[in-house]
Design a protein around this nucleic acid. Sequence first.
DNA 1: CGCCGAAGGTTTGGCGGCAAACCAGTTGCC
DNA 2: GGCAACTGGTTTGCCGCCAAACCTTCGGCG
Lengths: 155, 155
Amino acid sequence: MAQDRSAAKPHDAEVRLGPLRNFIAFHLRLAQDASFRSFAQNAGRRRWGPGNFAAMMVIRKNPGIIQVALGRAISRDKSTVTPLIQELQRRGLVSRRRSTSDRRSITLELTRAGEATLEDLLVHARAHNRRLDAILGKQKAVFLEQLRKIADELA
Amino acid sequence: MAQDRSAAKPHDAEVRLGPLRNFIAFHLRLAQDASFRSFAQNAGRRRWGPGNFAAMMVIRKNPGIIQVALGRAISRDKSTVTPLIQELQRRGLVSRRRSTSDRRSITLELTRAGEATLEDLLVHARAHNRRLDAILGKQKAVFLEQLRKIADELA
DNA sequence: CGCCGAAGGTTTGGCGGCAAACCAGTTGCC
DNA sequence: GGCAACTGGTTTGCCGCCAAACCTTCGGCG
């Protein structure tokens, strides 16, 4: 078994974080970490990570999108997108076709199976999202806007 | 060169995110991502990632801490801590000694050089932190508390 | 027309992280 | 006192991601 990072050994309560205690960046990582794990775990653990989900979601909403545009949308390098998409294609979830207007680029679309599995994932994703919303309460909207601001302005 | 994820190609403005647009988890990742990159880049790019910084900070504030406790504090698996610490030791920044009371565990301390480099890193870290604080404005405290809540309750 | 720089995609190499298996030492319990 | 469960640490294997180099295609411009 891997280490249980969440376990609150009474002893650990005494660990001092120093300046770290008030660093946004540090807690941003902790929160993202927890969120990521929670999602991956509850999403059937069938190796359907958040990455695949986000990619498929964007493809669904933008049929015919090309790889680099997808990469920019989900903030992944194109060299990360390539194998990710290839794997999805191998599983028969997305189709790739060379664009007729620009033979460099490849257009992406969800297959029937892709739509179906995405719908499945959406169930888990929505549940995860609700959990987070519940934790944040009324201030969710403000919180979200702040996250956007950070991502935007920290370009 | 790697892809420029921040570039706002006018074309990309039209990419639709669908439900993703309001998912906390998604934006949490984007924000963390941006923060991480910004830190790593400005911190002299001398391969002093946020990871090393957080670890050294905790060791500084808790001299004699053992590896698993450190791991829990910064939310890293023990199998991640081992090589991380070994590298810091190799660079002469931390000292490792077997505990006398429990011969399984290894106690950690910063060396002189370690203290010095940490002080150096703190300059960048503080700057990074200030940038984030500036983005968040008055509501920084609330935001921080919400991040803590997410990390805590999403155990 | 022909060239050259830019852009989309893939490949390769490296890094950081987790999980599981394992060893050594410790603790609890009968 | 001795065995079983647990704990700290390391090793190994894998995965996700980035950066850089490279190939192909596109597009502007002399």
